[in-house]
């Protein structure tokens, strides 16, 4: 008796072409994510509790007015780039000057904007203030600021270094209340 062998093979010759077409489609549509930005924790909505008293020397007031001029502790700062060193001196206070912060733990930077200020100026100022903190952390961890920012918190070794650098120096950047209608 003869068995009927009737298995027709599927023509797989064009499989490569189909995969190629799909591949090219994904090549074209892919944008590998390289998004970067500045992280900030917004302040809580104030309850009816009166705000805690903060000694004036522990507060570093930065104000941006509607003309995008920057006022630091009541004095005009023309160059945004100077803000970083001013903030660094205030936080660390290496020479224990009486008008700067008692210690880094109590230092608070208060950033207040006007409704008319531009977002660009706000980001530039925030960038400088963050930069001041990152430089202090990086010095403590003995790495470069860029390396500090890139620390992976999921890696226990890098997390330890991160926490070590940050102990005693919390990043106190506070957005002051601006009246919003």
């Amino acid at each position: 008796m003869r068995t009927l062998r009737n298995v027709t093979p599927v023509n797989a010759g064009s499989m490569a072409d189909i995969a190629f077409l799909l591949l090219i489609f994904f090549f074209v549509t892919t944008t590998i994510q390289t998004d970067k930005g500045i992280i900030l924790l917004l302040p809580q909505i104030p309850e009816d509790v009166p705000p805690a008293k903060i000694a004036d020397r522990n507060l570093f007031k930065v104000l941006i007015n509607s003309e995008n001029a920057i006022l630091v502790e009541g004095e005009i700062v023309m160059d945004i780039g100077a803000l970083k060193s001013l903030a660094k001196e205030f936080i660390a206070n290496p020479f224990q000057k009486p008008h700067l912060s008692v210690d880094p733990e109590q230092a608070i930077i208060s950033l207040k904007t006007n409704r008319g200020s531009s977002y660009l100026t706000y980001i530039q100022v925030l960038d400088q203030l963050k930069g001041a903190y990152y430089e202090i952390y990086a010095e403590k961890a003995k790495i470069s600021p860029a390396a500090f920012r890139a620390l992976d918190l999921k890696n226990p070794k890098e997390r330890k270094l991160y926490q070590l650098a940050r102990t005693g120096i919390p990043m106190n950047i506070s957005l002051a209340e601006t009246h919003v209608p």
Binding site: S117, S118, Y119, Y122, V180
Partner: peptide
């Protein structure tokens, strides 16, 4: 970058 802080603050207020 040319937005005014007014609308940024409004958005932040909603988020808060």
């Amino acid at each position: 970058k040319d937005m005014s802080m007014k609308s940024v603050l409004q958005v932040q207020q909603v988020l808060r």
